[in-house]
């Protein structure tokens, strides 16, 4: 396989870093090589955070940020500005947590509707977790849209990360996002 690169956009406290880490674990469960790491401005709740995940069939040896992702995952649509799609590969896909339609987001992001995927992850998180933490849920959407990691791997990675009860509600959020992403 050619190395896949994903970039997560969120705010401090929303779990963008954890999302990239769980994705790396999920890839590892499929005997792939992966590398997840964060980049942020200040270590504060609410501040914009980026995190990266690389997935490859061979060991990842580069240690640099992701500049040309094949996928961007936007946990918080209020972060959308002219720079958010920067470097996104030709034909690259954006997965957005929003109540808006695919077409509305496509126009906001300046991308073709075919490359934009939307899901109300906040609603799903509130229903399942009782809190608007969407990071795990969005990995369900990532699995459905990209097929790079299987739903089962994401669920197993979530179960490894959290204590049993918390894992259970997060897995439900993952499944809901997998089923509802459009």
């Amino acid at each position: 396989m050619i190395m896949e690169e994903a970039r997560f956009h969120g705010r401090g406290g929303q779990g963008a870093v954890t999302a990239a880490e769980i994705l790396a674990v999920a890839a590892g469960l499929q005997d792939k090589h992966s590398q997840a790491f964060p980049f942020f401005g200040v270590e504060r709740r609410g501040a914009p955070v980026m995190s990266f995940c690389r997935i490859d069939s061979k060991p990842v040896r580069i240690h640099q940020q992701v500049y040309e992702p094949g996928y961007i995952i936007i946990l918080d649509a209020s972060l959308i500005n002219a720079n958010i799609t920067k470097g996104l590969k030709q034909g690259g896909k954006a997965i957005v947590n929003t109540k808006k339609t695919k077409e509305e987001l496509a126009s906001q992001l300046g991308l073709a509707p075919a490359n934009v995927f939307v899901v109300d992850a906040t609603g799903i998180a509130l229903k399942n977790l009782g809190r608007p933490i969407v990071n795990t849920a969005m990995l369900g959407a990532f699995s459905k849209v990209t097929g790079i990691v299987e739903l089962d791997s994401v669920k197993k990675a979530v179960q490894q990360r959290f204590p049993a009860k918390l894992a259970e509600t997060n897995v439900k959020a993952v499944e809901d996002c997998f089923n509802q992403v459009k």
Partner: peptide, 12 residues
């Protein structure tokens, strides 16, 4: 070990 590049990298 390089901060963040290694310390915060999740990998195999």
């Amino acid at each position: 070990m390089d901060g963040f590049y290694l310390t915060h990298a999740v990998e195999q």
